[in-house]
């Protein structure tokens, strides 16, 4: 209870942190309550109401607040449902790549030697190929674009940053005298990793994970925009952008609103991540 109170006290002290938190909470609420909030069925086509402009423009009306796309589907409803996919993909991809990167980074940094060489060379190889390209090719080859495949592909291109970060942190911590002290007490490698290394790696891991949720959302949006990501009837922000692209000159709202949504979401998560980095820094006393 005291911890939670302290957390909010620290949060309110930072305006960007608060903004980030509010945005993230709002998006989560949108995703969870999309069914209740959405005024229309997101996939219902209404050919009498095609490319209707937003409510405040001439020709718009309040039944479609943000207008409709070229098939008469309500943009607001689609955006609300789209947040589900974006969040699910973003979080799952981060958890997967985080777990893989964490384990490989720990092993690589702590045990060193040949293991370290092998893991880091594989990481270099992954890093040498542009991520989106790798994802594009993989998704095309496997010809499947379910959420699971997409998550795995995004994880495959982003585990490297975790592995590198964790490895360098472990290398730094391994030389600290408190680790030496633990060794002279006879502690096992497992004890040292869980009691001394992990608690000190955790803060940077949390910060990078937060940022990585944003990165994964962007990757998902890009892949969907390129047509290999989320496929209809599932809705994603990137897919909506893609649909609206051809209409940009004549019906700007179809692509603009999902675009704004992506930007706001990324901004919010990044704000939150930056704030977490400041708060979790041991010199700022931690939480």
């Amino acid at each position: 209870m005291k911890q939670i109170k302290r957390f909010f006290k620290l949060l309110l002290r930072s305006s960007t942190g608060t903004a980030g938190m509010v945005i993230v909470i709002l998006i989560c609420l949108c995703a969870v309550f999309a069914g209740q909030l959405a005024p229309h069925d997101p996939n219902a086509m209404d050919l009498t109401n095609m490319t209707k402009p937003p409510a405040w423009m001439e020709g718009g009306d309040w039944s479609h607040v943000l207008g409709t796309d070229n098939l008469g589907r309500d943009i607001l409803s689609r955006m609300l449902y789209g947040s589900q996919i974006s969040l699910v993909v973003g979080i799952l991809a981060t958890l997967t790549s985080g777990a893989v990167g964490m384990v490989l980074g720990l092993v690589s940094g702590y045990y060193g030697g040949v293991t370290d060489h092998v893991i880091m060379r594989v990481a270099d190889a992954f890093y040498a190929i542009p991520g989106i390209l790798l994802a594009l090719v993989t998704l095309m080859v496997f010809k499947s674009s379910g959420i699971v495949t997409l998550v795995l592909v995004i994880a495959a291109i982003s585990w490297v940053q975790y592995a590198r970060l964790i490895r360098s942190e472990v290398l730094r911590l391994k030389g600290k005298e408190f680790v030496k002290a633990s060794k002279t007490l006879g502690a096992s490698s497992g004890y040292i990793i869980f009691h001394h290394i992990l608690p000190n790696v955790w803060p940077s891991f949390i910060v990078v994970s937060t940022m990585s949720v944003a990165g994964s959302i962007i990757t998902e949006a890009s892949l969907s925009f390129l047509g290999v990501g989320i496929q209809a009837p599932l809705i994603s922000w990137g897919g909506m952008l893609s649909d609206g692209r051809v209409l940009l000159a004549t019906h700007w709202w179809v692509a603009t609103f999902p675009g704004i949504m992506i930007t706001v979401a990324i901004l919010g998560i990044t704000f939150l991540g930056n704030w977490l980095r400041d708060v979790l820094d041991p010199h700022n006393k931690g939480l």
Binding site: L185, H195, P199
Partner: peptide, 17 residues
């Protein structure tokens, strides 16, 4: 039976404990 006292009192204590 044998223990060590370290040089750097800042690096010899885990900051999170």
């Amino acid at each position: 039976e044998m223990q060590m006292v370290f040089q750097d009192p800042f690096s010899s204590l885990n900051p999170r404990k």
